[in-house]
């Protein structure tokens, strides 16, 4: 499984991105991420979850998860992140920031 994560916008307007193969992570992290993708119902999420009236200086996210048989990309605005997707975004944000 491959994951690509990008964050844009925010007051600072700095681009944050990380792209990796799940197999390249330690076993515990890989397992946890697999769980987060599954908890998010990621492959069933709409391709775009956008705010009608954007709140100034909020972040925008773009996530792509590629499995053996399918690949899905979701664009989501911070103020309307679905509850089940928030833990995955938090995890990926920390990961991208620590690299």
């Amino acid at each position: 499984m491959k994951i690509s994560f990008e964050r844009s916008g925010g007051f600072a307007g700095m681009h944050l991105a990380v792209k990796f193969e799940l197999g390249s992570l330690g076993g515990a992290d890989a397992g946890r991420l697999r769980q987060l993708v599954s908890d998010a119902g990621f492959f069933d999420l709409p391709a775009q979850v956008l705010s009608k009236e954007r709140q100034p200086d909020r972040f925008s996210y773009r996530l792509t998860v590629t499995g053996k048989e399918r690949s899905h990309t979701v664009e989501v605005d911070e103020e309307v992140v679905p509850g089940q997707l928030a833990p995955l975004i938090d995890w990926l944000t920390r990961m991208a920031a620590s690299r």
Binding site: G10, E53, Q55, F59, A97
Partner: peptide, 16 residues
């Protein structure tokens, strides 16, 4: 890592 305006108030983060 952010501050924003949510349409009715200011919101500030602590930074990392």
């Amino acid at each position: 890592d952010n501050a924003f305006w949510n349409g009715s108030q200011m919101v500030y983060g602590d930074g990392d």
